[in-house]
Simulated assay, not measured.
Amino acid sequence: MEEKKKILLLCGGKFAFKAIQLLAVEKYLFGIGIGEGSEIIVDALERECENNDIPFQSFSNRKSISEMRTWINSIQPDYIFSISFPFLIPDDVLAYGAEKFINFHPGPLPQYRGVMPIFEVLKNQEKETAICAHFMNSKFDEGNIIFNDPISIDKDETYGKLAVKLSSRVAQVALNVANMLQFASKIPSSIQDETESYYYEKPQLSDTYINWKKMEASEIIALINACNPWNTGADASFLGEQIKIISASLIHEGHNNAMPGTILQLAEDNTINVACSDNQQIAIEIMSTDEGIMTAKQIMANRNLTGNIFN
């Protein structure tokens, strides 16, 4: 039986854990490096590696990347896979071998380059995303594409739900690529089309803040879902307080052109109905306030907020 290719996996945390498990079961995994993970995740992964005699290395900051080439040389892997590794791999490390480094990006390339494509595809109301397998170069997400593996986005999918779905899919995609490499010395790839490329920076407050005057109801719902749970919801302000809307749904009902952001009523289903700029309404179910995470009914209890406006 032909000896399995030795794969070293660079990761950024639990998003890669299903891939780690699958590659280990299939006897491809010969080393794990983690970058900038939480202490709990790093410690757990290190213990698991020790128990299974798998080389492990933590790269806690960009400076520590200088140690990566020596570590790779000590393991001598056939290929290095990357799943959500947070740091750019420098040229001296990439020089270990041409087309030896393969990244698995949780979004279609070249349209969704950047650190959080899951947020961006949801915010932009895409119907489909992808896991993109591509060779790595000295720039983020710009190496030649091996393939984009498409994944449908369900209606009202949140960031958390889509991340879990993509974590399972990236495991299978990584295994598929490992199997391809096992039986082929070279994998076809194509240069990215720069006319279709866009790089999204890490979201800032301006990206997660609801603009009631400009955003339509469907855009607001998409933003709320894209912010749940990583940002604890979409940002807004109400009566001078910064709040986050965690869960809401679209109501296909007009409101006689009330000012966008106006609370219309506490509905019978215990949601707060709010007017939007396109003469539609959203029904807020859960919010995070200074008092804690609360349902709409809890927020409206003992106070009449109807007619007040979100900013």
Results as ranks from 00 to 15, higher is better:
T158Y: 09
E39R: 12
Q298M: 14
V115D: 07
I224N: 06
K186I: 14
K6M: 00
K139C: 12
F104E: 04
P55A: 08
E285I: 08
I89G: 03
M116F: 05
K161T: 07
F135R: 02
L166R: 07
A130E: 06
I284Q: 05
L162A: 08
D290L: 13
I220R: 07
P55Q: 09
G307Y: 07
A267Y: 11
F183E: 06
K63R: 13
D278Q: 04
I20F: 05
I286R: 09
F30N: 07
N61C: 14
T271W: 04
S60W: 14
E201C: 11
N137C: 13
H252F: 15
N279A: 06
L223V: 06
F135W: 13
R113N: 10
Q125L: 08
G233C: 12
I246W: 11
Y159G: 04
D91Y: 09
I151C: 14
N61Y: 12
M294T: 13
P188W: 05
F85V: 00
C227L: 11
S82R: 00
I272E: 06
N211W: 01
Y96I: 04
K6Q: 01
D91Q: 08
F56G: 00
D278Y: 02
I246C: 14
P90K: 07
T70R: 15
F81E: 00
S138T: 13
I191T: 05
H105L: 00
T271L: 15
Q281M: 07
A222D: 09
L264V: 07
A171Y: 00
L8M: 02
K202D: 02
I243W: 10
E26F: 09
P229A: 11
L266C: 02
T158R: 14
L205R: 15
D290G: 10
E120V: 08
N273E: 04
E194C: 03
I72R: 01
F101W: 01
N311K: 11
I54N: 01
